[in-house]
Design a protein around this nucleic acid. Structure first.
Lengths: 248, 248
DNA sequence: ATGATACTAAACATCAGATGTTTCAATTGT
DNA sequence: ACAATTGAAACATCTGATGTTTAGTATCAT
């Protein structure tokens, strides 16, 4: 197990993830990245042990994890194969992260944003109706962090925290489970828009608008403001990917 | 491993799931069901082996699966503990199913339906814009099945197929990953409204309306029709849970 | 030739037990 | 008291043996 050793945002700083986790990530990235065709058999357990230099237990745990994420299907006797893309758990944090770390297609980012455009405005509306004082404080704190951020990274993280806080304030457990989707989407937007910090700061007033509406318990305004903000994000993404495919 | 042996909808008929899967389900159900407090340590590997009568490999695989689903957190040296509820992957098919198979609170079903009310109308709108002929055929086929269903079970399954077909026709991969949410929600509604078949048949014209709008490529109408349908479902659920808590 | 049966190799499933590593807490020496 | 040491508990990994299922192949009777 020398070639591997992946670190992830989820890992606590300095602590190496278990071998099983590492093998899982390596295989997951390759599958999501399309290096193994859908429906194709992957190497058998022994081959995998050899390839990664680990024991069978480790390989088995890794494979099981990928089965749980819908990426693999193992059949005793015949082997382990990649399931068709439609069966993958795209809402799983890891699967999503692998997609975004590997996926060059702008189409996927678009689809992700489309989905955010659907549920985040509703989340804002619900937050306006049901947010507690603490939850509003959390949103406000994120807003302040965005305003005070000097480094682009701090800004983007604060942005993500803002959206997560709104999601939490909606007080819907199922919705809250989409937290990972937001973080992943934001994270990948870092890569795209990293270049131009000024462009990002532009979205502060729109966040402010969302916050104000939630503070005022005005559900309609909150929904509209969030919708407006995401529409802006979408336009910028479209413009950026256009530049990308054309200019480069 | 005698006491266990759970079967699930996912299992192919007649094929017993692996021991690891069974142990995973048993532990998962107990955790989701609240038999183990959040933050509490669970039994160590040896104890679990003893309790379930399986070897350590099996227990480890099961635990790893639950870690992947966000239910557990293992720390070498100190033990394995239940993560706080907010960290659970509520969108994972299994976790969702465990919730619904165990959760007595009507609040959760409500939240699930709220989320459906958010994204299914949009899915219908997108389907109206981008569905292929085959995808529309799939929706229509489900509609016919609902109309021709004689048994209540066939009816409910057809209902689920209808909603899934709409989701697919939206041609958004991320959205499609919410398929499991719909099936789980529908499945649990079986238990609630099982009693009155006539009441269910009432929703056929609303499904028809959605189908017609999608066929006509009228996005606004499709969105409105789906919204109307889900609103009806919601009212019935509210009424039903009211009866439940009052009458019984 | 053809169809059914039996055999076999491949691949996953499970078990058992040994050894390493990390954490936490109790013990010990000052 | 306090800091360092020690040891038990618990997870991580390895090894190798044995069982089960599957798919393909070879064989044999008709």
């Amino acid at each position: 197990m020398s070639e591997l050793l992946y670190y992830d945002l989820k890992d606590v700083a300095g602590v190496a993830p278990s071998l099983a986790t590492q093998v899982c990530r390596e295989l997951g990235r390759r599958i999501v990245g399309g290096l193994v065709r859908e429906g194709a058999l992957i190497d058998d357990e022994n081959k995998l042990c050899e390839r990664f230099g680990v024991s069978k237990s480790v390989v088995r745990e890794a494979v099981k994890l990928l089965v749980a994420k819908g990426l693999l299907e193992v059949r005793r006797g015949s082997g382990t194969r990649v399931r068709r893309r439609a069966s993958w758990s795209l809402l799983d944090d890891d699967v999503l992260a692998w997609h975004l770390s590997v996926e060059p297609r702008p189409g996927f980012l678009n689809q992700l944003l489309e989905v955010r455009q659907v549920f985040e405005p509703s989340a804002a509306a619900w937050a306006a109706k049901s947010a507690t004082r603490d939850q509003i404080d959390e949103i406000r704190a994120a807003q302040r962090k965005m305003e005070n951020a000097e480094e682009i990274q701090d800004y983007v993280v604060a942005d993500a925290l803002f959206h997560r806080a709104v999601l939490r304030a909606a007080n819907n457990e199922v919705l809250m489970a989409m937290e990972g989707v937001i973080f992943s989407a934001l994270l990948s937007s870092i890569r795209l828009t990293n270049a131009d910090p000024r462009d990002n700061k532009r979205s502060i007033p729109l966040h402010q608008k969302v916050l104000a509406a939630i503070e005022a318990q005005d559900a309609d305004a909150a929904e509209a403001a969030m919708k407006e903000h995401l529409e802006g994000t979408r336009e910028r993404l479209a413009q950026f990917t256009a530049d990308e495919s054309e200019g480069k």
